[in-house]
């Protein structure tokens, strides 16, 4: 190793030092400790003393409320993904049309909910979906769609419905941009060739765009699912997990045990719940990844290959 390289390397390490410190203290150490804490009966105050083995895990796994929150989370994720992915693709296809004027304006408007503070939006939506004299009910009554005002946030199904709707509205623009990025990365020559061969817009979409988008769609699917897991801001401010835990999510469940307002936090138990949830997300994304890979391999043998 010559002297020039040696000094280069030291500079490189020096440059990375702050980030590596940050990584060690605020990422790696917390990951390790969240596993350690989960084996203790620990409130979060005072030293770690009471080692209880797998007891926390056992308690979480047998808690009805944990599974209720878990189920709600899956319902929320399922519906947002199933509706948002195709709808956002449609919007992206429209905004990708060469002759369509005014794309930037529409893109900005559709993207606006994404950049606005979720917690604030949750509060605003909460008052829009109120029961008496609230705007949503007033509009529906005006158009004679309903006779009596609906208690949107006081019924278990309607509050979940509002939550899913708000979640879709909030994430839609983001997914649309993902699709747009995918569409714009497709090679233009193929479309040119297809046009010469007499393929219409629909044929091009069916036989070129969709197969070629498949790899990107795997990434987008994963990003959308991950997005649906972190719903704390929206749920806390919009429904608070209510009425009576009907829209409770794992995020909120863990928060209550970790920083619960009751004044008796159980941070060991909360850590265990966090690990169980994290593990199951990990498994779900592995399974999703495998399914997508399989689908892609099959598609590749049918459609025209990219390479």
């Amino acid at each position: 190793m010559n002297r020039r390289n040696k000094s280069l390397y030291s500079w490189a390490y020096l440059f990375m030092l702050p980030q590596l410190l940050m990584l060690a203290v605020f990422t790696i150490y917390p990951i390790v400790m969240s596993y350690v804490y989960s084996f203790y009966d620990w409130s979060g105050i005072g030293p770690l003393q009471q080692f209880i083995g797998w007891d926390n895990f056992y308690s979480v796994m047998t808690d009805r409320y944990f599974w209720n929150a878990y189920r709600n989370n899956l319902i929320y994720i399922g519906f947002t993904v199933l509706i948002t992915l195709p709808a956002a693709l449609l919007a992206a296809l429209l905004l990708n049309l060469a002759y369509f004027k005014g794309k930037v304006v529409y893109r900005t408007l559709l993207f606006l909910p994404v950049v606005t503070t979720t917690a604030i939006v949750g509060v605003v939506l909460k008052s829009m979906f109120g029961t008496d004299n609230a705007i949503v009910n007033l509009v529906l009554q005006q158009f004679n769609l309903i006779k009596e005002p609906i208690g949107w946030l006081s019924g278990p199904y309607t509050s979940m419905l509002v939550l899913i709707g708000a979640g879709i509205w909030k994430v839609f623009g983001m997914i649309m941009i993902y699709w747009l990025a995918g569409l714009q990365s497709l090679p233009k020559e193929i479309y040119e060739a297809a046009r010469i061969d007499g393929a219409g817009w629909w044929a091009a979409l069916r036989y070129i765009t969709i197969p070629l988008l498949l790899p990107v769609s795997a990434v987008i699917l994963l990003l959308t699912v991950m997005n649906g897991i972190h719903v704390f801001d929206l749920v806390t401010t919009l429904t608070g997990g209510g009425p009576f835990f009907a829209t409770d999510m794992v995020d909120l469940y863990i928060y209550r045990y970790a920083f619960g307002t009751g004044g008796f936090p159980q941070q060991g138990y909360a850590s265990a719940a966090g690990i169980i949830f994290g593990m199951s997300i990990f498994v779900i994304s592995l399974v999703l990844g495998a399914i997508v890979q399989l689908a892609m391999r099959r598609q590749r043998s049918i459609a025209i290959g990219k390479e």
Partner: peptide, 30 residues
């Protein structure tokens, strides 16, 4: 810079992104 350990570091970054983390806000709080 092609410093020794670059690949390992990039791998560490990626690993941190994907491994199940648990509820890290509690240790951070501590």
């Amino acid at each position: 810079v092609n410093f020794p350990g670059k690949k390992a570091l990039l791998f560490l970054f990626a690993a941190v992104l994907f491994i199940p983390k648990g509820y890290t806000i509690i240790p951070v709080f501590q």
